[in-house]
Design a protein around this nucleic acid. Structure first.
Lengths: 241, 241
DNA sequence: CGAGAGGTTGAATGTACTCAAGCTGGGTGG
DNA sequence: CCACCCAGCTTGAGTACATTCAACCTCTCG
């Protein structure tokens, strides 16, 4: 892990991230306290119950947030994609463990400096609030998945979510009416299991099932091709309305 | 459901709710736009995908927030107790369906007026933000429960959560070292099932099990006595650390 | 007293889990 | 270059936990 200078003007996630709120001269100030940090897959970003010493935007890669029971059972309680914010403002202890799911680049802001900047720039706080609301929406949708969906619906919903988040960064193609997607899974089978409240074997079986049905194709074990996203949507059992 | 005047000075939840942020003269302004509304058990407070026309603090009773799949499966994604806030600021549509679990009193603020007040009183926005962070923490803890806990652990965790929330309003007694609790369940068996991702029969069996073990006593079907809270905690399988 | 909602209990079933073996592909060393 | 190793993944067989289906209980209300 090493740090380097940033350049907000050319930042790929600027408009989607909390920085989208800032005027040009505010960006200059932020630029002053921002540092890129790189993490390779699997490395720890934030220990639970620790006081984090920086906040961050995810620039590339995916960060997984996990909680663990005393006997070791794990649950992923959130995935942070590029443009998502990392860290709980106004909270001294992190409620979860944050880890790089694949290679990750963060745009970090030293805690004290960032908090000062937030105080002087009301637009940022509002933006942080909006991001927190998005996170809450995502968590509550996931509660429906965890509590009420079958294994196959869980897998379909998960793939769908990854398609949608990848699409934001431009990886899907609308071809002849039906949408097509091709993307890399940011998680291993066992991590998918921890995200969906399943075991690794069940995840594997369900993915194999979707492959047999022709709903997805696999290239290797991580790359997924979805010939018809609508078909996947039907299997995911969406929310009412 | 009917409305009536409020008196913030004597409000039981004032210091815990978002109003805790306000100075005396701000409270006077808020008092001007606040109206109590009563809902009897089972009545609809907020339809999903509707634009709500007011925000509210829960004053008494419990509000359940549910999401429903197209085929009717339900999941409760949140319970709002006295002092909790109801409504998503900066969002036009409610992501969930809100219903009075038991008889409920809300302290409501008409949408437009409240948004104006928030704009002029930065302390309120911060307070709303803090409440949203609490809600997010609760949601992510519940994800662990839904994804990774067994039926008996789920029931124990649920009872424990109700004990803790009831204790805040003063319903437990510390007697001779071990804590004792006596409280009414705000939910029916079938609602508990929808909160824990179980069926009503499983909920019933697990409660019977706890009763047989002597971990809880029942007075009627809704009133629970917990002779030793610590025993319940052991069965709930807490989070690490 | 009968009806009905909410709750409990029992028996059978099924979905996802556990345990175990086997496969695959990338990396290492002889 | 090939053999080997190992982690990650897949597949199979048997099991367990929660579900489903069904009957019955209990309390309240008309």
């Amino acid at each position: 892990m090493h740090s380097q200078e940033t350049a907000c003007e050319t930042c790929a996630v600027r408009h989607r991230s909390v920085c989208g709120a800032l005027s040009d001269d505010e960006i200059v100030r932020l630029n002053g306290i921002a540092r890129f940090k790189h993490f390779q897959a699997g490395s720890v970003i934030l220990r639970d119950h620790d006081q984090p010493d920086y906040f961050a935007n995810v620039v590339t890669g995916v960060v997984k947030l996990t909680k663990t029971l005393t006997d070791g059972r794990q649950q992923i309680v959130g995935l942070q994609f590029p443009s998502d914010f990392l860290g709980r403002p106004f909270r001294s202890k992190s409620p979860y463990f944050a880890e790089a799911a694949n290679d990750v680049t963060l745009c970090t802001f030293e805690r004290g400096q960032f908090e000062r900047l937030v105080k002087e720039t009301p637009g940022i706080e509002r933006r942080l609030f909006e991001h927190t609301l998005d996170e809450l929406d995502a968590a509550q949708e996931w509660m429906v998945l965890l509590g009420r969906k079958s294994a196959s619906e869980k897998i379909a919903s998960f793939l769908l979510m990854v398609v949608k988040r990848s699409r934001l960064m431009g990886c899907t193609h609308a071809s002849a009416g039906s949408e097509t997607g091709r993307f890399d899974l940011p998680l291993s089978r066992s991590e998918i299991a921890d995200y969906l409240g399943l075991t690794i074997e069940t995840v594997s079986r369900q993915i194999t099932g979707l492959k047999r049905q022709g709903v997805i194709h696999l290239d290797g074990t991580r790359t997924v091709i979805v010939p018809d996203v609508a078909k996947l949507e039907k299997l995911a059992e969406q929310e009412k309305e």
